[in-house]
Design a protein around this nucleic acid. Sequence first.
DNA 1: CCGTATCCGCATCGATACTG
DNA 2: CAGTATCGATGCGGATACGG
Lengths: 123, 123
Amino acid sequence: MIIGDPYSRDCPTRKVLDRIADKWAVLVLGLLMGGPMRFNQLRRTVDGISQKMLSQTLKSLERDGLVSRKAFATVPVTVEYAITPLGQTLADTVDALRVWAETHMEAVTAHQQRYDAGAASGA
Amino acid sequence: MIIGDPYSRDCPTRKVLDRIADKWAVLVLGLLMGGPMRFNQLRRTVDGISQKMLSQTLKSLERDGLVSRKAFATVPVTVEYAITPLGQTLADTVDALRVWAETHMEAVTAHQQRYDAGAASGA
DNA sequence: CCGTATCCGCATCGATACTG
DNA sequence: CAGTATCGATGCGGATACGG
């Protein structure tokens, strides 16, 4: 029984990480920043996503209060998803990661190349 | 063939996301901010991690240039891992996520509770 | 059009054993 | 002590089919 390890289990970073680890969630969130969208519209834009994943992602996002779901009882059911203020703050924070990527990603790639070339020998 | 979708495939966010999606990597990175550590020392601290994962994580981190590996040819081989300046910048950025979590996580939890209680009816 | 349930392949992760 | 290779379980994720 090693449950209760002091280091990582309690830290909230884990929770956010788990949340943004879902690439679809981040993508959808970013997309919704440009305004509300309908289900299939979202599906078409992200495109690489399956209904299952989109549905699952949207539900998760809604549950977390990051996006809101509004259904219109029209003849062919219409549903609109929109980002919430809370979702905005997260999206904004995640954007910092995007900035980091744009700034340092080439350095990372360079290191990868070097490592790949033969880091074991060159040290 | 839908390869080449304009929205997400090109954006660098995906890459960072993939990187930090690995909770172990983030944890190790954060740990290394407190100074260099040896393999088993790291293993003991993170504890929930397996050798396989730690080894894999460390290798990935080293390959990306986020941590450096220094081996001492002593009788019982000694190896020290340390965070690099590049790794520092990423860790710092990830820290922003931690801050977000500490600030908004309770709001998220509250939403979850409400949703769980019966969001379908209350809407 | 919106969404859910099922089936199934695949990548991941943990546990174990063994080498330098 | 540091690290790799293999095996088996598990859960994620995609495609499909069907219901509201």
